[in-house]
Every structure is written in C-alpha cells, then in structure tokens.
Simulated scan of single mutants.
Amino acid sequence: MQKQQIPLKNSLFLLLAAIIWGIAFVAQSVGMEYVGGFTFSAVRSLLGSVVLIPLILISGRKNSADTAATKANSFVGSSDGTVSSIRKRKDLIIGGISCGICLCLASNFQQFGIKYTTVGKAGFITACYIVIVPIIGLFLGKKCSKFIWAAVAMALIGLYLLCITDEFSIGKGDLLVLVCAFLFSIHILVIDHFSPKADGVKLSCIQFLTCGILSGIPALLFEHPEFSAICRAWMPILYAGIMSCGVAYTLQIIGQKNMNPTVASLILSLESCISVLAGWVLLGQQLSAKEILGCVIMFAAIILAQLPQKQAE
C-alpha cells in the first residue's frame, strides 16, 4: 500500500508546482512592465532563497537532536558517519550550485522570451521539455516504456491544440523560449541526479541563492535597478519569489525524488494549460473549443504516464 502512495504523493507535489508556475507566467509578464528581466529574476530568486531559511533551521534542529541521540547510544562506525556526512555536504553544495546555474540560464531566457512573444506561445514552447527530456535521457541510459512515449505524443497534441494559433511563427521571443525549454530539460535531469543525494529544501535554497547572485550581476551592470521600481512590482515579484520559487521549485525537487524524469516532465508540462486558464481568469481571455480539447488530452496523457509506474511497482 505504501509503495503505491509514494508515487501519488510525488505526482501531486509536481502537479501543484505546475499550477503555481502556470499562474507565474502572468506574474512574469506583468513584472516586466516595471523592472528589467535580470532584475526580476534576481529579486524573485533571492526572495525564494530567504523564504526557505526558516524551514531549514527548523529541520536542522530536529536532525541535530536525532544525531545527538544516535551518538549517545553508539560510538561504532563514527568515522564512516563522518565520511558520509562530508560526502552529503559535497553533493548538496555541488548539486545546489549546478541546479542554480541551470535555473539562472533557463529562467532568464524565459523571462526575456515572454517579453517578445505571447503567454500562450511561451507556455507551449517551454513545455517542449517533455520531448527533450526523454531524448537526452536516452543518451544517459534512462529507458522509457511505450506507455510514456505514447503519453509524450498525446501531450504534444494537447499542447498544440491548447496554445498554437493558426498564425504560428518563430520570432525572437519564440527562439529565446525554445532555448529556455532545452535548459529546463537539463535542469530536470540535474535535479534527477542530485535530489536523492541531498536534502530537497537545502538544495532548493542553494539553487535560488546561486540563481539570484548570477542574475544580479547583469542586472547591476546593464539595468541599474531602482528600489522604487521594484516596489511598484511588489505583487508579481512576491508571487514569483515566494510561490513560484520558494514553494514550487521545492515541490519539484521533493516530488521528483526517485521518479522517472520523463514522467515528472509530463506532469510539470501542465503549467502550459494552467497559464492559459490563468490568462482566461485573470486577464479575461476566452478558451475556445480547441483549447478545451487540448486540456482534456493533456490530462489524459498524465494519467497514461502514471499507469506503467504503478504496474511496475
């Protein structure tokens, strides 16, 4: 029973992350009206890192208490425990910095791409990582079942119906977001490698700190951010920083732990559906029959991708 509940819980975490990210497309678009792209990415990332510090402190106290109790009861294998602790710390730092570099590149390409294209196109092109992830995964020795490949095909059809209009053209913004999709694919695979080796919240905190610092350098050099402008963009920045960064990316790291990265990318691709729905609710955009059909096919693809997982376990 427990083995079946763990993948479901992980899937729900990833689904919640996709919902938060889908709404964040609106926040990113509105935020660019007040501040530059690098400034927005830097502030939201640093805010996301700060939000996670209280959680790390609370969990650190519990872990230190458990460690002290264990050492009091046994002195055997202390050297092995020290080596293991050093290895975990090394994996945490390297993993956090690696994830942060990938996130910095991907999020900034996306941020500037949204400026030159529509939210619907950005959502679709970003979600192309559902195809890029399994292709890259093949070169890394990660196999996918026929059910998952069928789900990938269904998801692509659903995304096409949902986001692509009759006049689809590859412009400057589309190319930037396409590069973003490739970088997010690498980000997903890097998380897949490091999430089993390190604490998810700490890993997420380090990646945001890294992303914020790296984004802040070009922001200071080229955009010269003003505090008054950041204050005017407080609402989209708070949502993007606390919810999209602090909450959603942490949900991704925790939810993706021990999960097939292709299945994870399929669930996360639902952000494109949510972005269109958010535009409908928050910006008054209407959904056509074709877009509704795309949503239905997307959800069917997610269900299909989950079935092999449960059967295999």
Rank of each mutant, 00 (worst) to 15 (best):
G120R: 15
S78D: 10
C104E: 05
I97R: 08
G77E: 10
G137K: 01
I94K: 03
L92Y: 12
V119Y: 13
A69W: 01
G81I: 06
I130P: 08
Q110G: 11
I101W: 08
A72Y: 06
N73W: 02
R87E: 13
I93D: 11
D91Q: 12
V83Y: 04
L92M: 15
S78Q: 13
Y116N: 10
K115A: 02
K62A: 12
S74C: 14
Q111S: 09
T82A: 11
V133S: 13
D66V: 11
I97H: 12
I93E: 04
A68M: 11
S64C: 14
S64K: 07
T126C: 01
I125T: 07
T118H: 10
F112H: 13
I101F: 07
L105D: 12
A68Y: 09
V83I: 10
C102S: 08
F112M: 03
A127V: 03
T70Y: 04
C104Y: 13
A122R: 03
N63A: 11
C128V: 14
S78T: 14
G100T: 12
R89Q: 11
L105K: 03
Y129H: 04
P134N: 08
D80M: 03
G100H: 10
K62R: 08
L138H: 03
I97Y: 01
G77Y: 04
V131D: 05
L138Y: 01
I86G: 00
K88W: 11
A69H: 15
T118M: 15
A69D: 08
N108H: 03
I125W: 04
L103V: 10
F109P: 09
F112P: 13
I135K: 00
I130W: 09
D80R: 05
V131I: 15
N108G: 02
S64Y: 11
I114A: 04
T118P: 06
A68T: 09
S78G: 08
K71C: 03
I86H: 09
G77F: 10
A127T: 01
G77R: 07
T117S: 05
I136F: 10
I130R: 05
D66L: 10
Y129L: 02
N108F: 04
L105N: 06
S107K: 04
I135W: 00
T126F: 05
L138V: 09
I93F: 12
S78Y: 15
C104G: 09
T126M: 00
T67P: 10
N108T: 08
L105C: 06
Q110L: 15
I136K: 01
F112K: 12
V131L: 15
I135P: 12
G113M: 09
I114R: 09
K121E: 01
G81S: 15
Y129R: 02
V83C: 01
A127F: 04
T117F: 04
R89N: 12
A68N: 07
C104S: 10
A122E: 06
V83F: 07
I114K: 01
T117Y: 05
C128Q: 14
G100Y: 14
G95F: 11
S85N: 02
N108R: 06
G100S: 14
R87A: 04
I93P: 02
T117M: 00
I94Y: 05
F124N: 03
K115T: 08
